Amino acid sequence: MSEASIRIIASPESWIEQAAIDQLHHTAQLEGIDRVVGLPDLHAGRGIAVGAAFWSRTHVYPHLVGSDIGCGMALWRCALPLRKFRLDAAERKLRGLESPWSGDHAGRLDEAGLPSNLLGNALGTIGGGNHFAEVLRIDTAMDAVAFAGLGLDPAAVYLMVHSGSRGLGHAILERHMVRHNVTGLVAGEEACVDYLVEHDQAMRWATLNRAVIAERFFDRLGTTGERLLDICHNSVTSHRAGWLHRKGAAPADKGLIVIPGSRGDMTYLVRPRDDPGDLALQSLAHGAGRKWSRSEARDKLVRRFSISDLERTSLGSRVICEDRDLIYEEAPQAYKDIHQVVRDLEQAGLVDPVATLRPLLTYKTRRP
């Protein structure tokens, strides 16, 4: 069986671990996979490289999307002026967000065109792993014309939410794996159609989940917000008479995207450029990408830093994470340099940076 073409978009200054490259080559050997692209945030995942896109003319592979179907990043501009934001007060107010949302689950699901009983108890919750909600402010505008044209306000507070379909996507993938394991689904056949119906439901659920999370944060902070963007980075979509799988890869054909660094670094707001040759499969990095695995991060950092050290960042922001293991696993040191990732994308002709946003407060989890 021939191997699909593989393109890795990264400069010599960027370190890409061999394990991630090996995973790309393994995926390139799957039946029907025609093209594989690795982005600058590429890193090894659980059998599948993260920060990659995979295109097939004939097959859909659910395990290339993974269990968190619809996971993505959304950004809101808050009505709260930056001059009125108080970090200590915000840290005190942001509590109880792990408990189920007390709103109208059935009504919101129905409005989104979803079954009214579809995993309602999890709606409005962030989840674990690398998911978070973050309060930010504008740090630097690189493109003054684009910045002004987008209506961005340097005097405003912003909220970014990174979450997905929670247990729904996991259940969908588990059902598929029991029936088909990692065998590809032939496009158009019943099994593929059934998966895509569930996949699209999980996508809508994830988008709604990010919106409800934002509403909960606004309620705690006493403000409202306007959503500027919502971009998914785990999905499979039709693309050029085939099927494009993105695993930790942001779309380049949906307008502005945010590319966050670690929880102690900047987030970039970028404008994708046209890619007429489809060299990157219309995909971009979705973040900084891991430098160390979770176990490596714990082992390397637990002897060097206390939990209180990691609750404050070099940028002066704060991190709320009351899970001892998670705060080490998600420490800034465990991630690659976001500035290098964005430089790689810019040098490849894929993006124009518009602005950077500086974190003020990152929320991951509190004990119920």
Score class of each variant (00 low, 15 high):
R294A: 00
G316A: 08
A334V: 03
L315F: 05
E329Q: 15
H286M: 07
S308E: 15
G289T: 04
I327E: 06
R312K: 15
I327H: 06
E322N: 04
L345A: 04
A288R: 09
E296L: 02
G287V: 06
R324N: 13
T313D: 03
E296G: 02
T313E: 02
D337R: 05
L279K: 09
D323K: 08
P332V: 02
L301G: 00
R343K: 15
R294M: 03
K336L: 07
E322W: 08
G277K: 09
A280Y: 13
S283A: 12
V319W: 01
Q340R: 15
V341A: 03
R324Q: 14
Y328V: 07
A334E: 05
L315R: 05
D278E: 04
E322F: 09
G289C: 10
A331V: 05
A288G: 07
L326H: 10
Q282E: 12
V319S: 01
A280E: 10
D278K: 06
I320F: 10
D344F: 10
L315G: 00
G287Y: 04
A285Q: 09
Y335V: 00
A285V: 08
A297P: 00
R303A: 14
L281P: 04
R312P: 00
L345E: 12
F305E: 11
L310W: 11
A297G: 02
S317Y: 10
L279C: 11
P276S: 00
C321T: 01
R303Q: 14
R304N: 12
R343G: 05
Q282G: 11
K300C: 06
P332Y: 04
R303Y: 14
D274L: 07
E346C: 12
D274F: 07
R343C: 12
S283V: 06
S293F: 06
S283M: 10
E330M: 14
L301E: 04
Q340C: 10
E322P: 03
E296S: 01
P276A: 02
S293G: 14
L326W: 14
L281V: 03
D278Y: 05
D275S: 01
